[in-house]
Amino acid sequence: MRLLILGGTEFVGRAVVESALARGWEVTVFHRGRHEAPAGVTELLGDRTAPDGLAALAEGTWDVIVDTWSAAPSAVRDAARLLAGRAGRYVYVSSCSVYAWPRAVGYDETGPVVAGSPDAGDVPYAEAKRGGELAVLDAIGEARSLLVRAGLIIGPWENIGRLPWWLGRAARGGPMLAPGPRDTPLQYIDVRDLAEWMVEAAERGLSGPYNLVSEQGHTTMGELLELCARVTGSAAELRWTAAERVLAAGIEPWTELPIWVPRAELPELHNEVYGLSAAKALGAGLSCRGVGETVTDTWAWLRSIGGVAPRRGDRPGVGLDPAVEAKVLAG
């Protein structure tokens, strides 16, 4: 199989490249040259946001194209139109954010979605992802389009900083704010499981939208943080603190305390992030590794690059100010 990936040097894109190479695929990576491409690929350089930025893609045919773009839908539109006649299947990495509010627990691919336009420029994230979906459908058609609506993605190469922040915090040791309840259920997808499923699904000719995430309650906040403390070998002392107290201190869930969304206090947000139905993807072969493997491997990757995770410039930083943490713990 011949794969063209638009991106391919960071996080999701890199995981897709590694998965495809492991299967013996021929991989072409189209990117801006800001990061080193994985070994074993053919590189094409260009900036899809610049005039004539797709010139390097003027020729060539591929069995599968994977597009991870998350900004202006018009960039997806332009690439999809250019490649429509030279692509067997177009896989667009979308997001569960495309579903409209409010969302009931167990929402699936049939749920209502936000409005979007394939011709839009800079728009909010949910609209951008929906516009990207529409751009692919308009250019490629439903039969050859695979829309991957991912939930929370963590694992090696993460450039958002959520799990890396918790690992770094645990590694520092000492009293550590652990936001409760301890049994808060989490639902996510390891980036490698996401990539493996996408590559296999494309090979099998699947099409349409799929929620890509583990089953609900795949792990808990307690298990995740205890694993972070254990794999880092630190002397971190988890101080479980009631959600009401954490919120009363003005601490923002999801951003200042990454991954954490208290179910009782913020039910709509918890349903959005951790209430998806993954039945369709699980029925189509999705397999999710255990949280222990994800945490262990992410820590090993962090150590291999000096302990500081890369950060995307288009996303806000995450993590809690140590002074704020100390104040809450002092109570």
Rank of each mutant, 00 (worst) to 15 (best):
P181D: 03
I140N: 00
A249T: 11
V291K: 03
A55T: 14
V114Y: 06
D321L: 04
L147F: 04
G46M: 10
P179K: 11
Q216V: 15
R315I: 15
A326N: 14
A79Y: 01
E196A: 14
G24W: 08
Y274Q: 11
G85F: 12
R14L: 13
A242N: 13
K280Y: 14
L21C: 10
W166T: 09
K280H: 15
A58P: 03
A178L: 02
Y90M: 00
A58W: 13
D67I: 03
G222I: 01
A229V: 15
V199P: 00
L6A: 03
G331M: 13
S207D: 12
S95E: 05
S70K: 10
G174S: 03
P175Y: 03
R144S: 05
D183S: 12
P209D: 06
D47V: 07
Y107F: 14
E223M: 09
P253M: 09
P262N: 13
G313I: 10
A75K: 13
I305W: 12
A248G: 15
G168M: 06
A126Q: 10
E142R: 12
V66Y: 01
R162F: 02
N159F: 09
W197A: 06
A235P: 13
L147Q: 08
H31D: 08
L224Y: 00
R192H: 06
A71E: 15
A330Y: 12
P156N: 04
E109Q: 11
R315N: 14
A15Y: 00
A323D: 13
A84N: 09
W62V: 06
H270Y: 11
E215G: 14
W69V: 06
P38V: 11
G317F: 01
E256N: 09
R239C: 14
V17Y: 03
L57I: 09
R144G: 02
A79E: 00
F30C: 06
D321K: 09
R169S: 01
E127C: 04
E10G: 13
